[in-house]
């Protein structure tokens, strides 16, 4: 079943086409990796899908509903939730309060929201920081907090923007494991990442973007052997 359908999606910034005629279809339960050089339009694509930016043209259909141009809060409420590459904690709040804000979306009472938040916090293994001020977390902790807040909304489709960036290799492995669990729980994932080992380990299909356009889309092993992909992004060494 198709969960997300993107048709001819385009975003121009005063003439510059940051995202240009992108067509993607994401199936329910899929894990789609997205790679591409800096400036390829990966984050802009996420912003268009999640409602931070209105598209210039094109169409986004999520779960059978046309959500093109919806504001971010409405998109998130419908079950399409993103994380940010640069973490955006609510700094005056503790970790628990941060996650409870998101959990409030489905739980009106404070008690129920905090309970659900604590459950998500344990799930992303942030329990040791549960009452810590969110601003005091190390980078790996902030990455987990971004994930926890997104998960607290109980999304159907999760857009992850470089959750591994800024982490040392030893910190990456447990997060990759966590993403695997989240996916196994039934969440559909779109995953922008530069760490190729993680991309290859997790992705069921791979989308390559360059200069705002779709360069290749398909089986990850085939896509990374595509000469255009090697030239545009991976370099000869990787292939």
């Amino acid at each position: 079943m198709t969960l997300l359908q993107v048709d001819q999606l385009t975003k121009s910034f005063s003439g510059l086409r940051a995202v240009s005629d992108v067509d993607v279809t994401v199936t329910d339960g899929e894990f789609l990796g997205i790679i591409g050089p800096n400036g390829a339009g990966k984050t802009t694509l996420f912003s268009l899908l999640a409602g931070q930016l209105p598209p210039t043209s094109g169409r986004v259909v999520f779960d059978g509903q046309d959500i093109t141009g919806w504001p971010a809060d409405k998109v998130a409420g419908a079950g399409l939730v993103r994380t940010f590459q640069l973490m955006r904690p609510f700094e005056s709040m503790s970790v628990l309060e941060n996650v409870a804000v998101a959990a409030h979306h489905r739980h009106r009472s404070r008690r129920a929201a905090r309970r659900h938040a604590l459950e998500v916090i344990e799930r992303v293994r942030l329990a040791e920081y549960v009452h810590a001020p969110s601003g005091s977390l190390p980078t790996a902790g902030l990455k987990r907090l971004e994930l926890a807040r997104a998960l607290a909304l109980e999304p159907r489709l999760l857009l992850l923007d470089e959750v591994l960036a800024g982490l040392v290799p030893a910190e990456r492995a447990p997060i990759i494991e966590l993403l695997r669990e989240i996916h196994a729980d039934g969440v559909t994932v779109m995953f922008v990442e530069h760490i190729m080992a993680a991309v290859m380990a997790l992705s069921e299909r791979l989308l390559v973007m360059a200069e705002g356009q779709e360069l290749a889309l398909g089986d990850p092993q085939e896509v990374i052997r595509d000469p255009r992909v090697v030239e545009a992004y991976l370099g000869e060494d990787y292939a």
């Binding site: 999640a50 409602g51 931070q52 504001p71 971010a72 809060d73 998130a76 409420g77 939730v81 993103r82 940010f84 955006r88 904690p89 609510f90 804000v101 998101a102 979306h105 807040r149 997104a150 909304l153």
Partner: peptide
């Protein structure tokens, strides 16, 4: 921005 992305 983060608040809006969490459905607020």
């Amino acid at each position: 921005t983060a608040a809006a992305s969490l459905g607020i």
